[in-house]
Simulated scan of single mutants.
Amino acid sequence: MGDTIDVRLTADEFRYVISCGSALLLNIPEGSLPTYTHFSKAQIIDFSARMREQFDQAGYDM
């Protein structure tokens, strides 16, 4: 894992970040993902899963 940055988000902002990762996978061809996001499909799935886990641990519903 690279450098980390601590960021404060509201629950709605956090929900948005998680939802956008999933939406990218549905709407952008896999080969184009790195162009738009600098993340591969596998990286987006991993990031979204980790963020979803954090959201669930905080007690929020998606």
Rank of each mutant, 00 (worst) to 15 (best):
R50G: 09
E30L: 03
L25F: 12
G31N: 10
Q43F: 07
Y16N: 13
F47R: 14
A58E: 07
F55W: 00
S48F: 01
D61C: 03
A23C: 04
R15L: 02
S32V: 00
L33V: 08
C20E: 11
L26H: 02
E53I: 14
D12A: 14
F14H: 10
G21D: 05
Y16Q: 04
S48A: 15
F14T: 03
A23L: 07
C20T: 12
P34Q: 01
R52E: 10
F47D: 01
A49T: 08
R15D: 06
D56C: 07
Y60L: 11
Y16G: 03
R52M: 06
S48N: 12
D46F: 07
D56H: 06
V17I: 15
A58F: 01
V17P: 00
Q43A: 15
E13K: 06
A58Q: 07
S19K: 09
D12N: 14
L24Y: 15
A49L: 07
S19P: 00
I44D: 04
N27R: 15
P34L: 06
I28M: 10
R50D: 08
N27L: 11
K41A: 12
F55N: 09
A49N: 11
H38N: 13
S40M: 04
S19E: 11
L25N: 05
K41L: 03
G31T: 11
R15H: 11
L26N: 07
Y36Q: 08
I44M: 13
I18N: 06
I18Q: 05
C20N: 13
P34D: 01
I44K: 08
R15I: 00
E13G: 15
A58T: 02
Q54D: 09
K41V: 02
L33N: 10
G21L: 03
I44E: 08
R52D: 05
R50Y: 10
E13D: 10
I18D: 08
F39H: 14
D61F: 02
D12P: 00
G31C: 01
A58V: 02
Q57A: 13
I28W: 01
L26M: 10
F55L: 13
S19F: 08
T35Y: 14
S32P: 00
P34G: 05
I45H: 03
L25G: 07
D46E: 13
I18M: 07
C20D: 03
Y36F: 14
R15V: 00
Q57T: 10
L33H: 02
G31E: 13
S48I: 06
S40G: 05
D46V: 12
S32W: 03
F39E: 07
D56G: 09
D46L: 12
I44W: 15
H38W: 03
G59R: 08
F14Y: 06
A42E: 15
C20M: 14
D56S: 11
S22Q: 08
K41C: 08
F47M: 14
L25T: 12
D46G: 03
M51G: 03
G31F: 01
S19D: 06
D56P: 00
H38Y: 01
Y36H: 14
M51Y: 06
S22H: 11
I44H: 09
T37V: 05
A58R: 05
Q54H: 09
S48P: 00
I28T: 13
S32E: 14
Q54A: 10
F39R: 15
N27Y: 09
A23Q: 12
A23G: 04
F14G: 04
Y36S: 02
N27V: 11
F39Q: 09
C20K: 14
F47C: 12
Q54C: 02
G31H: 03
D61H: 01
